[in-house]
């Protein structure tokens, strides 16, 4: 068993609970002991672009501090938004002067720096590896045609991109390793509209419609995402006339392939009758 610190984020503990259970189950099957950070706080959702109002940066840094207290060097997130905020914060306080000033807020604790933030996708690519992923797949996706949707925060801004921002490939490779067929499509790196879902539903709807039409046009049977917020938008903000394309979280595909139950994937793969008991 390899231990890894885990930052769930608010969405996975509230609206997107279902995404968490299966994913963590699959990671356990892959030999990870997931250590949820005790007493984590909201990542902040968006990285604060204000450089001098340091209190806006305290929240994410506090989470890194707690990873440090667990004596872990890496922290895993399942959410692309959390990844973006935490990874950028970790970088922001690489500057010793900023770190000193933020630590003055964190007093009596102090963050030493150096915690690495990773996302589920990079864990699968860099640590598990495509080959092992394929070898550990107990229930292949049967060639299911899946369109990987990256959205923006995993790929932008460039210094924090987990893959080539213009032509990413990691998710396609994961889908194939799990026995699916990856369907690349032009809109796969477009932003879904993220938190404008609260104030400007119209903007989000327009983008969601475009993304789903593009994926369907490529012949996909399902879209796969790396972020609970993208997931929400792509399901709940569909304008009228949008193709009826199922949206899955990356961890759901993983969970199914590793032998965890996932009704969403089960019906798509067309083997709904196979329970996880049968493959254990």
């Amino acid at each position: 068993m390899k231990t890894i610190a885990y930052f769930p984020g608010c969405a996975l503990k509230d609206q997107a609970r279902a995404d968490e259970t299966g994913t963590l189950g699959a990671l356990a099957r892959l030999g990870y002991e997931i250590r949820e950070i005790p007493r984590w706080n909201c990542c902040g959702t968006v990285f604060s672009l204000v450089q001098d109002d340091l209190m806006r940066h305290v929240g994410p840094v506090r989470n890194l501090l707690r990873v440090q207290a667990m004596e872990e060097e890496k922290v895993l997130t399942l959410c692309a938004m959390c990844y973006g905020t935490l990874a950028r914060s970790a970088h922001f306080v690489e500057d010793p002067e900023r770190l000193r000033r933020i630590n003055a807020f964190l007093d009596p604790d102090a963050y030493q720096g150096g915690v690495e933030v990773i996302h589920l996708l990079t864990l699968l690519r860099d640590e598990v590896g495509y080959e092992r992923l394929a070898a550990e797949t107990r229930r292949p996706l049967n060639g299911l045609r899946v369109a990987p949707y990256y959205g923006c925060v995993l790929l932008r801004p460039r210094p924090f991109a987990v893959d080539d921002p213009d032509s990413p490939a990691a998710m396609e490779r994961v889908v194939e390793a799990l026995g699916g067929t990856a369907v690349p499509f032009p809109e796969r790196t477009e932003c879904c509209g993220t938190h404008l879902t609260v104030t400007r539903k119209d903007v989000v709807e327009e983008r969601v419609g475009r993304i789903l039409r593009s994926a369907r046009g490529g012949g996909a049977d399902a879209l796969v995402v790396t972020c609970p917020l993208c997931h929400f938008n792509l399901e709940e903000r569909r304008p009228a006339g949008t193709p009826d394309l199922p949206v899955l979280y990356l961890g759901q595909l993983l969970a199914w392939a590793m032998g965890e139950d996932d009704p969403g994937v089960a019906s798509l793969v067309g083997r709904a009758a196979v329970s996880s008991e049968a493959v254990r």
Binding site: N41, V58, G59
Partner: peptide, 18 residues
């Protein structure tokens, strides 16, 4: 909330307010 923890430090009951 920006998770500054000021509330926790202010609490006379030593609650984890934040």
């Amino acid at each position: 909330c920006v998770a500054c923890n000021t509330c926790t430090k202010a609490c006379p009951q030593k609650l984890e307010v934040m």
